[in-house]
Design a protein around this nucleic acid. Structure first.
Length: 494
RNA sequence: GGGGCGUUAGCUCAGCCUGGUCAGAGCAGUGGGCUUUUAACCCAUGUGUCGGGGGUUCGAAUCCCUCACGCCCCA
C-alpha cells in the first residue's frame, strides 16, 4: 500500500484520503460550521496580547488551510478566511492525540473550522489554539506553488479562484473595484442623480461607434444586439422629464482583445438636464477624484513610474491644438484634408484616403498624442464626423461640444453637450449612413425610434460615459485591463 | 493580417545558442524525525505525450517546417 501510494500522483492521493475519511465516518463535505469570529476581528480584538500570553477567550474560525509547518507533536497551520490569515497552533496536547493524528488526512487547500483559545506564541504570532478541528470541505486538487503562486497569466484568468486564493494583490484589486463602484454611486447619488437600468438587448445598437455582438430573439424572430453604449435609452429618460440619471452596466463591443480592450466592459453613463460639457468636465473630475480616494485613499497615484496628483489643474485643450502641438505645425478646423494626409504620411500614420478631415485628425490624435497623455487631460471639440450625438460647438459648428478625458494614455471618458435638435440628429444619422455605405462597419446606425423621442423634446443636457475598468486599471497601475476584470474574455479551452 | 517572445512534473522554473548520462531543481506529495514555526528544518523517495504533427540526423526537449494556444508590439 505504501509502495503503491508513493507511485501515485497528487490527485490520486487526495482521493484516497477522501475515501479514508468516509471510511472513518467523517463527512468530507460538511453542511455548516458556526463561526463566531473572522481572522480580521481576531487581529483587531487581540492586538494587545503579549508574546507567550493566552487570552482565555475561545473563538470559532473557519477558512482555507493555506500553510502547515509540522514539528512532531506540534504544528503550525495558516488559516485564511475572507478577511485575512491567522495562525493555528496545533498541539497534540490541546487537540488530543487522536485528533492530532488525524491531521495526516488534511491537505493544504482544505476548508476547515477550528475552535480554540486565542493565544500569542513566544515568537509573537497571534494564533488560535484549537481544541477542536473540523473538516468542512476536502480539496482534491493542490493549490499553486506557495511562494510564487500562479504565474501563468492564462491560468490566472481561467482559474481566477486560484489567483484569489493565493495572491493578495488579486484580492486587493477585487476589493478596490467594489470600493470604486460604491464611490461612483455615492458621488452621483449625492448630486441627486437617479440610478436606472436600461435594455442590454437592443434592436438597434446605438450610442457609440463600434461593431456590436448580434444575437437572435427566437419568439420575435428578429436579430438583436448587445448594447455598445447606454446613451440612447438614458436620453429617452431625459425626454421623459428625469433630470439627472445614470446607469452602471455592462456593454459589449465585438472587437479585438488587448491590454486596453475587453469585449465586455463596465460603463458608467450620466446625463444631466441643463448641463453643458463644461459641467460634465466638472462632474468627471469629481468622479475620478472620488474613485481615486476610494481605491488608493488619496488623490494621487502612480502610473508606470510617473506620479500623478489629481489636485493639480487638468489641462483642457482642443483636439486640433493637441495634434498641432504634437506634429509641430498648425492644425485647425480649416486645415485641408490633403495637408493632414501629408502629416499622416510623414508620421507613418495609416489612413483611408476617403476619410474626411475630421476623422483623420482624430486618427492623428489617437496615434500620435493619446498614449503620451499620462496625467488627466481634457481634449475637446471633436469633429462632427466622428461625434454623431454631440451638439455643434457654440462658436464653430464644424466641431462639436465633445471632450474626451485621457489618463494613462487611454480614453477614460467621452462626454458632450448633448444634441437635442432632432433634425440635426437626423442629418448626423444620414452622414453616418453614408459612411456605413462607404464601408465603415463602425458607423452609427440610423435610429428612427430615437429620433421620435427627440422630436418630443429633450431638454438641454450634458452627458458623459466613464470606462470603469479602464479608470480602475489606471488608478491601480495595473498592467492590463484583464487584471481588473475578474474573468476576462479568453478563447475557450479545447 | 504581420512581427517578436513563450509552451518542460500538480505549481514555479533550469536545460535549448554549441544535438550525444538532458529528463533536472525547488515547492507540493509520500515515508521517517522533531513541542514555538513564519517560504520551518533534517533524512529518504515517486513524479513527465519536454504543446501537437512532420522533417533532418546514427541520435532531437535541443536544429528545420507546420499547426494550436498564450503574451507583447504593429496594422
Amino acid at each position: 500500500m505504501t509502495e503503491d501510494a508513493t507511485a501515485q500522483d497528487v490527485l490520486t492521493v487526495r482521493r484516497e484520503k477522501l475515501e479514508r475519511l468516509r471510511a472513518k465516518g467523517i463527512e468530507p463535505f460538511a453542511l455548516r460550521f458556526d463561526r463566531d469570529a473572522t481572522t480580521a476581528e481576531i487581529a483587531g480584538k487581540f492586538a494587545g496580547l503579549e508574546p507567550g500570553e493566552d487570552s482565555g477567550q475561545v473563538v470559532r474560525v473557519a477558512g482555507r488551510l493555506v500553510g502547515l509547518r509540522e514539528h512532531g507533536k506540534l504544528s503550525f497551520g495558516v488559516l485564511r478566511d475572507g478577511t485575512g490569515d491567522v495562525q493555528l497552533f496545533l498541539s497534540a496536547e490541546t487537540l488530543g492525540a487522536d485528533a492530532y493524528a488525524a491531521l495526516e488526512d488534511l491537505d493544504l487547500g482544505d476548508w476547515i473550522g477550528a475552535e480554540g483559545e486565542v493565544v500569542r506564541t513566544k515568537r509573537g504570532e497571534l494564533s488560535v489554539r484549537p481544541a477542536r478541528l473540523v473538516l468542512l470541505t476536502k480539496s482534491l486538487r493542490p493549490l499553486p506553488e506557495k511562494w510564487h503562486g500562479l504565474r501563468d497569466v492564462e491560468l490566472r484568468y481561467r482559474r481566477r479562484y486560484l489567483d484569489l486564493a493565493t495572491n493578495e494583490e488579486a484580492r486587493a484589486r477585487l476589493a478596490a473595484r467594489a470600493r470604486m463602484l460604491a464611490a461612483l454611486r455615492g458621488h452621483l447619488d449625492g448630486l441627486g442623480f437617479v440610478e436606472v437600468e436600461t435594455p442590454v438587448l437592443q434592436p438597434v445598437a446605438g450610442g457609440g461607434l463600434a461593431r456590436p455582438f448580434v444575437t437572435h430573439h427566437g419568439a420575435l424572430d428578429i436579430d438583436m444586439y448587445l448594447r455598445i453604449a447606454l446613451e440612447l435609452y438614458l436620453k429617452r429618460l431625459l425626454v421623459g422629464g428625469m433630470e439627472r440619471v445614470y446607469e452602471i452596466g455592462r456593454t459589449f463591443r465585438n472587437e479585438g482583445i488587448s491590454p486596453k480592450y475587453n469585449p465586455e466592459f463596465t460603463m458608467l453613463e450620466a446625463y444631466q438636464a441643463y448641463g453643458t460639457y463644461e459641467d460634465m468636465m466638472d462632474l468627471t473630475e469629481g468622479l475620478v477624484k472620488a474613485s481615486a480616494e476610494a481605491v488608493n485613499g488619496s488623490r494621487t497615484y502612480s502610473w508606470r513610474g510617473t506620479g500623478v496628483d489629481l489636485d493639480r489643474p487638468w489641462p483642457r485643450i482642443t483636439l486640433h491644438d493637441a495634434v498641432a502641438e504634437a506634429v509641430g505645425r498648425d492644425v485647425t478646423t480649416d486645415t485641408p484634408v490633403e495637408d493632414l494626409q501629408r502629416v499622416a504620411d510623414e508620421r507613418g500614420v495609416g489612413y483611408d484616403p476617403a476619410w474626411p478631415a475630421g476623422k483623420l485628425v482624430v486618427e492623428l490624435f489617437e496615434k500620435l498624442v493619446e498614449s503620451n497623455l499620462v496625467a488627466p487631460t481634457i481634449v475637446k471639440d471633436f469633429p462632427r464626423e466622428v461625434s454623431p450625438l454631440a451638439r455643434p460647438h457654440r462658436e464653430d459648428p464644424r466641431v462639436t461640444e465633445h471632450f474626451d478625458l485621457i489618463m494613462g494614455g487611454v480614453e477614460i471618458v467621452p462626454a458632450y453637450s448633448e444634441l437635442t435638435d432632432p433634425d440635426e440628429q437626423r442629418a448626423r444619422f444620414e452622414m453616418q449612413r453614408a459612411q456605413a455605405a462607404a464601408g465603415d462597419d463602425e458607423a452609427h446606425p440610423f435610429d428612427q425610434e430615437f429620433l421620435v423621442a427627440l422630436e418630443h423634446g429633450m431638454p438641454p443636457a450634458g452627458g458623459m460615459g466613464l470606462g470603469v475598468d479602464r479608470l480602475l486599471m489606471v488608478l491601480t497601475d495595473a498592467p492590463s485591463l484583464r487584471e481588473v476584470i475578474l474573468f476576462p474574455a479568453l478563447r475557450p479551452e479545447s
